[in-house]
Design a protein around this nucleic acid. Structure first.
Lengths: 188, 188
DNA sequence: CCTGAACTTGAGGTGCCCTTCAACTTATCT
DNA sequence: AGATAAGTTGAAGGGCACCTCAAGTTCAGG
């Protein structure tokens, strides 16, 4: 049984939207630990209203980032349908880095875990599975090295959350090609 | 004329050492923005003493990290003397990642700039020059791609400040080989 | 228009951190 | 042993952020 969702009063809905928008901006440049008071300030709303609508920080994070995570999943679905499997792989990597480079909050959402927000973790897992297919296809095509794993994606992407990510990613991609592969270290 | 350095009283010197040790630990796990009170607490010294010895945060950062930076420079010098230029290049990359993975403070020292602590910036520049030689040799040997630049090192290393850095670095290194090289993106 | 429920407000309590400084303690030198 | 410069201490003042709640305001349905 889903929690009964009485619709919000119109003013409350407006404030909710203002808060989410403000939070997107503030999380985007200051990260997920940004000040909640700053977010309320920017939304033009009192701190009490923020707490009314979002009792915890993760509730707000969820409201802001569930969308982008689904968007990432769709990107992966598109990537899985490329004729050229390697191109699809590269396409998804690039879109992911793009999103992270543009949004510090998104970067942190992707690298942290959220025990108190199962929806977030579920959305991440789903996108992960979709990208798993992309990886498999690229490996079967013989262009992606066989020892590439899903977690390597997290590594690669989380490591490119900076302005010159294009260049960094280009090196990595060269290192991902099957023809470039040398044995990986044992551990991990 | 060098600032006259009257020697510290014995107790003061002891406290200074305690503070630097504590700061190394705290910066190491909490980063350069860690609480100064926490550092004083861990050193078993009052917060006033910390401020007596290190009037600013950067003064303390300098005291902690000038050593490691010089150590990095020596590592680069060793790397420049490898018979196998490519092996020297890889050696320095690995040692650098090792230092950063082990010390969050060091990571931040390497990626930030310190206008108020010229000594830090100088030490970084020096290590950079030394590593520049390593790069040149590796490129002349034909093993390192010709379009590799010194800043790419900063990229690579700052991006590997996490537990599974070995694996990430392995991919990057495969991407750094001349034989793996594909054209890099234009910008930056 | 009126009323109750929904919503908003912001001051206030708590906690952590930064930084200063006047009063106190200690090392060192003669 | 005494004098004094050097060093230590921690309370106090100022900030900022978190979170709560009693009092006030606004919406929406009758």
């Amino acid at each position: 049984m889903p929690t009964e969702e009485r619709p919000l009063r119109r003013d409350a809905q407006r404030n909710r939207d203002l808060l989410v928008t403000a939070a997107r901006e503030v999380f985007g440049c200051a990260g997920l630990d940004a000040s909640l008071e700053e977010i309320a300030r920017r939304a033009g709303v009192s701190i009490g209203t923020l707490y009314n609508r979002f009792p915890t920080r993760v509730a707000l994070i969820e409201a802001v980032f569930l969308g982008p995570l689904e968007q990432a999943n769709e990107t992966a679905e598109r990537a899985a349908e490329f004729d050229d499997a390697w191109a699809g792989f590269v396409y998804f990597l690039e879109r992911s880095c793009e999103m992270q480079a543009a949004d510090r909050g998104f970067t942190e959402v992707c690298s942290r875990s959220f025990p108190d927000a199962p929806a977030l973790d579920r959305a991440k897992a789903k996108a992960g599975e979709t990208f798993g297919k992309v990886i498999r296809r690229a490996q079967e095509s013989g262009r992606l090295r066989a020892d590439f794993r899903l977690d390597d994606f997290a590594l690669a992407v989380s490591a490119t959350a900076h302005p010159q990510w294009r260049r960094h990613l280009a090196f990595l991609i060269d290192g991902f090609r099957a023809k470039a592969a040398h044995p990986l270290p044992d551990a991990d």
